[in-house]
Design a binder for these strands. Structure first.
Ligand SMILES: Nc1nc2c(ncn2[C@H]2C[C@H](O)[C@@H](COP(=O)(O)OP(=O)(O)OP(=O)(O)O)O2)c(=O)[nH]1
Ligand SMILES: [Mg+2]
Ligand SMILES: [Mg+2]
Ligand SMILES: [Zn+2]
Length: 583
DNA sequence: GCCGTTTTCGGCCCGACTGTTTTCAGTCG
């Protein structure tokens, strides 16, 4: 997407200006604009055509004209001018820990370093030690920073980070010096991917608590250890930051460490405008602390309601809070069922009976058992004979279940073929209780083709849900290119928020755009075993980050409402809730 | 470079840790 391309240019522009020692607020302006573009839901080409670039926060006259230039000409003269004579590798390098703009500039000016290889040679030959301000320890830290950066560039999935954080919290809570420990940072905000773990410790003896933290099992290296904060690198390369405060600063410290950075800066600016100062120690009027122990009070002292962590990205949540218009976010307990789960008929590991049993334990009113269609050969998609067998087994299982709960839905996750046709004929599709249509092939189609393909699928009245619409896989496959607005407008089918920890698809901002455009959503687990039904919670996290309310989520509806929605489309009746949503 | 309950200039969040510094710059959260 062009948004990402331009965001990357602005980010690099920011680094170039910093490298050259330009005014730091100019540097900041480019960085903020880059961040702002990444949060954008609309295609910049569309926004530009509509003349609405100046509505983007952080984009003024200059940056707007640069965006237009890139859209029209595919390049930006001022960017090209700035980067002339600066090795791109050095701008990349500025992402490595310890390699700030000043350091990298010195490497370039004094040692004419232009690549990582040259940098490595300079470190090993001792050439760096000759430089003013570069002692033994600094060079050693640079060596480590470079190694860490080269070995672990990827962010980790939330589904990996969250259990890791829980384990560390368990260990911390056993320490006598630790009164309380909580996870903060992007994990608490439930971002789909996590850079590092941020832990908050409450202690009457912070230095001691941090010393003990730095000796926890699994710690490979202590990168920093002070009186109030410490950073360690775990075996496996994950960075863990810990911040320790006294009880009376707990709320403010939790607010600070939860972030995001952009949310914090905005909040602190508001505090300042009100004659207050906000830091991780509290909210202060002069020397007087007016809040600090409790996070809700920290927000309250700024005349704001507590903002749910998932919203704290400075994507309009502070403005919404000021107007009392925060969304009533969907909660896990509001889900009454799961509409995407595989069985051992295709690539799942559990039987129909096992899936049903776990769904019953989760208190579900319904669960859809959706296996693959024949084109998904690796996933052992079902042919018609196998469908017949599966149908009969579901019928039998229905009779076995006390009170016939949960309702077992005979479902399919049918492939959307490259030409937009579905992988079962209509008469077969008509027999399912619920059909989710998903793309599992030909990911590289053009935006137009892909959009048409999805709309073709939606136009089949048997289809009620589009599964994992972007088909991205975190860490290995990017999203397919399609026009989200057009797909939303096509209506007819709900869009999935797939909770599989490597999918989380739709993304948060796309889900938000979908709800805003009046689309319905389905939050599903895409479980491939009974235990994986629980990963639906990650879908809920993602939905909350997308400002999603229960009214938009079809599987928060009671069975009678869901049931009539499932049938409405092919029976030609008005789909209940499709227009306005309902609980 | 952006932006406006301090409006079109003059600010732009606030604090901790490290190394090499003789008083603080650089980097990071
Ligand atoms: N006020 C303020 N807070 C910051 C700043 N940088 C970071 N923080 C706070 C908010 C962040 O969420 C928190 C943890 O910092 P991280 O760098 O770990 O970021 P975060 O966890 O949000 O994302 P990550 O997934 O780790 O990249 O510290 C800053 O420049 N100013
Ligand atoms: Mg973090
Ligand atoms: Mg951190
Ligand atoms: Zn799938």
């Amino acid at each position: 997407m062009i948004n990402e391309e331009i965001a990357n240019i602005f980010e690099r522009m920011s680094r170039l200006l910093a490298f050259k020692g330009e005014n730091r607020f100019r540097v900041l302006a480019y960085r903020r604009a880059a961040q702002s573009l990444r949060d954008l839901k609309d295609d910049l080409a569309t926004t530009a055509r509509e003349g609405r670039l100046d509505e983007i926060p952080g984009v003024g006259k200059d940056l707007a004209s640069m965006i237009r230039e890139y859209i029209e000409k595919g390049r930006i003269r001022r960017y090209d001018a700035e980067r002339r004579g600066v090795p791109g590798a050095l701008i990349d390098l500025m992402a490595a820990p310890g390699f700030g703009p000043k350091t990298v500039a010195v490497l370039h000016e004094k040692l004419s370093i232009t690549s990582v290889e040259e940098l490595n040679r300079a470190i090993n030959s001792g050439a760096l030690l000759e430089l003013r301000g570069f002692g033994e320890k600094k060079v050693e830290n640079l060596r480590r920073g470079l190694a860490l950066w080269l070995s672990s560039k990827q962010r980790m999935p939330l589904g990996v980070a969250l259990p890791m954080a829980e384990k560390l919290l368990d260990d911390l809570r056993k320490l006598a010096s630790v009164e309380r420990a909580d996870v903060a940072g992007s994990v608490r905000r439930r971002r789909d991917t996590i850079g590092d773990l941020d832990l908050l410790i409450v202690s009457a003896n912070s230095p001691r608590a941090l010393r003990e933290f730095s000796k926890l099992p699994g710690v490979k290296q202590v990168a920093a250890l002070g009186e109030t904060r410490a950073t360690v690198i775990m075996e496996g390369g994950v960075q863990v930051d810990a911040r320790a405060v006294e009880k009376n600063s707990y709320g403010a410290a939790l607010q600070y460490l939860t972030g995001s950075k952009e949310h914090n800066v905005h909040l602190r600016t508001i505090a300042r405008r009100r004659g207050l100062k906000l830091s991780e120690y509290g909210v202060f009027r002069g020397a007087k602390r007016v809040a600090g122990a409790d996070e809700r009070d920290v927000y309250g002292s700024l005349k704001l309601p507590l903002i749910p962590p998932e919203l704290r990205e400075d994507r309009g949540e502070i403005e919404a809070a000021l107007q009392g218009r925060l969304p009533d976010l969907i909660e896990l307990e509001e889900l009454r069922g799961d509409l995407h789960a595989h069985t051992n008929y295709s690539d799942g590991r559990s039987t129909i009976e096992e899936m049903a049993a776990r769904a019953a334990e989760l208190g579900y009113e319904y669960i859809a058992l959706t296996d693959h269609s024949p084109s998904s050969r690796i996933a052992r998609g079902l042919d018609c004979a196998q469908l017949e067998q599966k149908f009969e087994e579901i019928e039998a299982a229905r009779k076995n279940r006390p009170g016939r709960r949960p309702h077992l839905l005979f479902g399919a996750e049918v492939d959307i073929l490259p030409n937009g046709k579905l992988d079962y004929p209509d008469d077969v599709l008509a027999r399912f209780d619920v059909v989710t249509a998903s793309i599992h092939s030909a990911f590289k189609q053009s935006k137009d083709k892909m959009t048409g393909r999805l709309i073709d699928a939606i136009s089949n009245p048997n289809v009620r849900i589009i599964g994992h619409p972007t088909t991205r896989l975190l860490g290995s496959r990017g999203p397919v290119d399609f026009d989200l607005e057009a797909v939303i407008k096509a209506a007819g089918a709900a869009l999935e928020i797939n909770g599989a920890i490597l999918r989380l698809d739709l993304t948060d901002t796309m889900a938000r755009a979908a709800q805003q455009g009046g689309a319905l959503l389905a939050i599903n687990s895409d479980a491939h075993s009974a235990a994986q039904l629980d990963q639906i919670r990650y879908g809920v996290y993602q939905a909350r980050r997308g400002w999603i309310e229960a009214r938009s989520v079809v599987n928060s509806w009671r069975w009678p409402d869901l049931s009539s929605w499932l049938e409405a489309r092919r029976s030609g009746r008005q789909a209940r809730g499709a227009a306005t949503g309902r609980r």
